[in-house]
């Protein structure tokens, strides 16, 4: 029991530090501190509104899509098709980039090809469909399309470069870590 408490204090250490910083900000300037808490609250509500489906999908993905299927769809030897599937999975998502990491973790655990997981992360970060629509309405269609077209090769390039830059051993460590975490 005491051990879990200790472990949790360690896990939430950074959060507590930030909490102290926020209170310090409030002492320094009450309005500024309150603003910071209010923003945290607004963001938390926003996050909580989008995270339940993200994590439920993650659970369903883990239980229903077994390793063999994931390898067939996005694993080594899935070629262009695998890259396209990873791209679409990321683009059709919702939520901030950091919500993509746990799902990427499940993909790694099911032995998706490394570069495809990075493509998934890239698509999640830049080519999410609702964000594109929002971008077009606020910055104009031309701006959005230009950025979208430039980012397509960028997503692939980043995936190819990271895939090449990491040794097989380093990738192995990442896959083993994903196995342990899930």
């Amino acid at each position: 029991m005491r051990k879990t408490v200790k472990k949790n204090i360690k896990r939430y250490k950074f959060f507590f530090i930030l909490l102290v910083v926020s209170f310090a900000l409030m002492v320094y300037d009450f309005k500024l501190g309150m603003d910071s808490f209010r923003l945290t609250g607004v963001n938390m509500l926003e996050m909580l509104s989008i995270l339940p489906p993200v994590f439920i999908l993650l659970g369903l993905l883990d239980v229903w899509v077994d390793k063999a299927l994931m390898i067939k769809l996005t694993g080594k030897g899935s070629g262009i098709k695998g890259a396209v599937i990873a791209f679409l999975l990321g683009s059709l998502a919702a939520g901030p980039l950091y919500a993509a990491f746990p799902i990427a973790g499940v993909m790694l655990k099911k032995e998706s090809k490394f570069s495809n997981v990075i493509i998934f992360i890239g698509a999640w970060s830049t080519t999410k469909v609702p964000m594109l629509m929002f971008e077009a309405s606020s910055m104009g269609l031309k701006f959005m399309l230009l950025r979208f077209l430039l980012n397509l090769p960028v997503i692939v390039l980043i995936a190819l470069i990271t895939e090449k830059a990491l040794s097989e051993d380093e990738k192995q460590v990442i896959y083993e870590n994903a196995e342990k975490m899930n």
């Binding site: 959060f15 930030l18 808490f37 945290t40 963001n43």
Partner: peptide, 12 residues
Amino acid sequence: PQFLSVLMLIGI
């Protein structure tokens, strides 16, 4: 823990 820290950091 990371989620909460990120949210606090954004707020600040």
